[in-house]
Write a protein that binds this DNA or RNA. Sequence first.
DNA 1: TCTTGTTGGATTGTCGACAACCTGCTTGTC
DNA 2: GACAAGCAGGTTGTCGACAATCCAACAAGA
Lengths: 226, 226
Amino acid sequence: MSKLDFSPIADTTRRAEIVALLRRAILTGQLEPGQKLNELRISEQMRVSRAPLREAMRELVQEGILTSIPYAGTFVVDVAAKDIVDAYSLNKVLDDFAIELAWPQRDQRFFDELDRRHEAVKQATRALDTTRQIETALQLHGLVYEWADNSVLLETWQRLTSRLQMYFALHQRARNEPVPAEDLHETYVALLKGTDMRAAQRHAREHIDNDFEALLAYARSLEKRA
Amino acid sequence: MSKLDFSPIADTTRRAEIVALLRRAILTGQLEPGQKLNELRISEQMRVSRAPLREAMRELVQEGILTSIPYAGTFVVDVAAKDIVDAYSLNKVLDDFAIELAWPQRDQRFFDELDRRHEAVKQATRALDTTRQIETALQLHGLVYEWADNSVLLETWQRLTSRLQMYFALHQRARNEPVPAEDLHETYVALLKGTDMRAAQRHAREHIDNDFEALLAYARSLEKRA
DNA sequence: TCTTGTTGGATTGTCGACAACCTGCTTGTC
DNA sequence: GACAAGCAGGTTGTCGACAATCCAACAAGA
C-alpha cells in the first residue's frame, strides 16, 4: 500500500477546455449578455472544429449562462433585474440551510480553509483585482456548502454561483469604479468559528443583503429603465 | 391586437427529440442506473448520427441524470442512498420557500389548476399507472413553484424533480408491487386553498415525509447493502 | 505464478463537408 | 411607391469518416 493517494489526472478533452474558456469569458464579462456566439468564428479562433465547441455550448446552456434558439443561434443569457432578485433571495434560503448542515461538521480543516479563503479575498481586495475579488468571495461563501455534505445542495449552489458571478461582473463593469469595500467578511468568518449558529445564520442573511445592496440598486435601476 | 396568443411552435431539431426520448427512458427506469450508453448502437437505433446524440447526452449530463467519463463512456447516473436523502432534505427547504412566495400570488387560476392536477393524480392512481402517478404527483407539487414567480427557484425544482422521479421509478421497480396509496394529497390541496400559510408549510413537510417514507426505507436498505 | 509489455478490437473524441434553415435584399408586378 | 416572390449569403444542424484512447486478452520474462 502506498502512502500517497493520487487524485485523478486532469481529463484533457478539447470539449472540457472549451467549456472552461467560454465560462470564464462569460463570467468575467468579456462576452456580454445577449451577445451571439458565432460557431464558425469561435471554432476558428480556438483552432478547433465545431463539434466539440457545440457540445461545450450545450453544456453551458444547461448551466444556465447561455441560451439557445434552434437555427437562430446561441447567446449569452440576458440578465433581467428580476433574475438578480430571484437568485439573491434563493441564495439566502440556501445559505441558511447550508450553515445548518455544515455547523456540526466544522472541524480544524474547516477553520483552516475558512482562513485561507478569507485571506485570498483580502489579497484580491488589496490588489484591486475586482474580478478575482468576486471569485474569491464566492469561494469563501461556498465553503459552508462544501462542508454541508449534501451533493444536491452543493450542485445547486454552484449553478447559482455562476449567475451571481456574472451579475457581479456586469455590475462592476456598469459602474466601472469598483472600490471594493475593505473587509465585510471579518464578522462572517468570526461567527462561523463561534458557537451560536442562529447568529451566524442571521448575520449571513444580513451580510448577503449588504453584499448585494449595490447590486440590488443596480437591478432596480435596470427595472426602471425597462 | 389579436385575442389569441400563440404558443411557440415545437422546435423540431433532432437533438431536442433525442433529449426527450432519452430523458423519458431514464426517468421511467427503462435505462437502469449505472448502465452505459453506447453511442453507436443508440444512434443506429434512432436512425440518427452521433453528433446530435452526443449533444443531447451533454445536456442530460448537465441535467444531472447522466454522467460522463472521457474516453470511457456516458452512464446513467448511479443513485446512492445518500443522494436520495440529500435531494429529499433540500426538497423540504425549497417547498417551504416556494409556498411562502406563491402564497400571496394564489388566484382563481391557481385553484383551478390545483384541482386539475389533483384530479390527474387521482386518475392515474385509479388506473394503477404508477409511472404516470409519479409524474402527476410531481406536477401537482410543482404548481407552487410555478406560482412562486422565481425563475431560479423553478429551475432548481425542475432539476430536483428529474432526480426524484428517477428515484421513485427505481423504488417502484425494486418492490414491483406498487400499491399506490389512494389519496394522500387531499389535505395538501385543501390547505393550499386555505388561509393558514404556516399550516400549509408544516403539512407540506410532513406530507413529503410521508411520500418519501417508503423511499427512505429503501434508501436505508441500500445503505446497509453497501 | 506474478508481473510487464504488446496487440487487436471496440468505443469515444474530433474533423471537414453537406443539408436545412433563416434573413435581408433584390426583383418584378400592381 | 407598396408589396409579394424569390434569390443569395451566411449560419446552424446533421452526417459519415478518421484519429485518439481505452480495455481485455494474450505472450514473454523473471
